[in-house]
Design a protein around this nucleic acid. Structure first.
Lengths: 238, 238
DNA sequence: GAGTGGTCTAGACCACAAA
DNA sequence: TTGTGGTCTAGACCACTCC
C-alpha cells in the first residue's frame, strides 16, 4: 500500500499523517485493514520511528485508527459521530451578532444546600434568575445555582452588571461538564418572561460544571425555539 | 470524573502534565502567569526536554496554556466552553437502552438534484422518509437526502431492513459535518406520524455531512421533546 | 542577538499481547 | 518467545519573536 506524498510546507509528521489520512478517508484503505508497522513506515519515509509514532498517535487520537501492541495499527471502523459543540458565552455571542446585550437580574438569593438541588454540594448556594436580552428583546431565561464554597467571590459579585455566565467564565475554570439539551413547551411563567406563547417550543440547555469533583455551578437556560439554534461544526482535528 | 492523584503507574509526562494542570485548575496559577521554560522544567523534573515538551503540548491542545516562541508558556485565559457532543446512531442507542428498534420506511424516491435541495451536489439524489420506533412506539421522524454520486451503493440498498443512518455509518466515512439543533412545534404532519399533539415541542436535529468537499448526506430528524435528550459530556482530553 | 518553542534523530528499554 | 506500540533520552537544528 503506497500513497503519494502530499507535498507542501508541512512538517514531516504532518505529511505522513496526511497521506495515511487520505488513504483512509478516500476509502482506498478499508476499516480493518492493517497499516504498516512504525518501523516499516519509518524506513519507507526515511525518518526516525518517533516521527512516525507521532503521526500515528495523532491519527489514533482523532479516532481514525486503532492500535494494538504486537498486532499493529489498523484502520478504525467508523464509530459514533462526535462533534465539537461550542457552548458560547451568550453575551459574547449576541454582541458578535451586532445586537445589544443586556442581562436583567430577576432574583438573587442565598440559602443552604437542599437535597433536591441539582448541584450536589454542601454549604451555601447562590441562586440567580434572570433574562438575557438581545437588541432589547428577551432572548433567553436562565436559572443558575452557584456553589459558594467553590466560588466564594460570587457572594460579592454584582450580577446586575455582568451576566453570571460571563462572570464565572472569568473567575473560575472547570474540569468536567455535562450538558443536556431538550425541547420543551414554554409554559406560563417562562412564556410571560420571554414574551411568547405558552405553547411555543423552547430549546432548553442544562449544564452542570465541576472542578475536580466539586460542583461549581448548574444552569438551565431556556430559549425560544425560533430565536436560538445550537450549531456544532466538526472537522477532524490534526 | 477526573482522577487527580494518579499515584498509579502514571507516565512521566502524565505526572508533569498533572502537576501543572492542578496548579492551573486550583487557581494557584492565574491566567497570564508565566510557566517555567521547557529547559527549566526538564531540569526540575530531571528528565529530557522532549518529555516536558510533550506534556506542555498536550496542555496546549487542551486549551489550558498558551505558548509563544521566545516568550514562553503561559496559563491561558478561559475561553469558550467546548463540549464533545456525541451524535449516536439511533438504532444502536435504542438497543443499548434495551428497547426494541425498528425503522419504518415511509417513502423512497430518486430524482435529480434541485437548486433548493439542502444537499449541494450534482446528479441524482435519493430521498428517504421514515420513522424510528423504540419499543413499538414512534421515537423520531427522519427525512434524508443521499448524494448517489458519492454513495452509489445506496441505490440498491434495502432501507426497509436497515435504517439509513446505520447503513451509511457502515458504508461511508465523512470528513466534515455540521449540526444544527433547534426546538420546533411538531405541526400536523409530524404530530400524526409520531402520535403526539401538533403543539408539542420537538427537538430537531439537522446534519449535513461532507467527504472531502463533496456533499454526502443531509438529514433532519425530529424527536418528541419528552422522549429524547441530547447529552454531551466533556472532560478535557489528556 | 538570544531565548524559546517546534521538530527531528538514533538510539534505548519496557509492557503487552499475539503467535 | 517475539513483534509491536509506548515511552524516554540526549542530543541537534530551525523558526520565530521578543528584547
Amino acid at each position: 500500500m503506497k500513497a503519494k506524498p502530499s507535498a507542501k510546507t508541512a512538517t514531516l509528521d504532518e505529511q505522513i499523517r496526511g497521506t495515511i489520512e487520505d488513504n483512509i478517508r478516500s476509502g482506498v484503505w478499508k476499516p480493518g485493514d492493517k497499516i504498516a508497522s512504525e518501523i516499516d513506515l519509518a524506513a519507507e519515509y526515511g525518518c526516525a520511528r518517533a516521527t512516525v509514532s507521532k503521526a500515528l498517535s495523532t491519527l489514533h487520537r482523532a479516532g481514525l485508527i486503532e492500535r494494538r501492541r504486537k498486532a499493529g495499527s489498523f484502520v478504525a471502523f467508523p464509530h459514533v459521530q462526535s462533534a465539537a459543540l461550542d457552548i458560547p458565552d451568550i453575551a459574547s455571542m449576541i454582541m458578535a451578532r451586532g445586537e445589544q446585550y443586556h442581562f436583567e437580574l430577576k432574583t438573587q438569593s442565598i440559602r443552604s444546600h437542599r437535597d433536591d438541588d441539582p448541584l450536589n454540594c454542601k454549604g451555601d448556594v447562590l441562586i440567580l434568575e434572570g433574562i438575557h436580552h438581545a437588541g432589547g428583546r428577551p432572548f433567553g431565561y436562565e436559572v443558575r445555582h452557584i456553589n459558594l464554597n467553590a466560588v466564594p467571590d460570587a457572594r460579592i459579585a454584582d450580577f446586575g452588571e455582568t451576566a453570571p455566565g460571563s462572570w464565572l467564565l472569568e473567575h473560575i475554570s472547570w474540569t468536567d461538564a455535562r450538558h443536556r439539551i431538550c425541547a420543551v413547551q414554554a409554559g406560563g411563567t417562562i412564556a410571560k418572561l420571554l414574551d411568547i406563547a405558552s405553547s411555543d417550543a423552547c430549546l432548553q440547555l442544562e449544564r452542570s460544571t465541576w472542578r475536580q469533583g466539586q460542583g461549581v455551578t448548574w444552569v438551565r437556560q431556556t430559549f425560544p425555539g425560533d430565536r436560538y439554534d445550537l450549531v456544532a461544526e466538526f472537522t477532524p482535528q490534526s
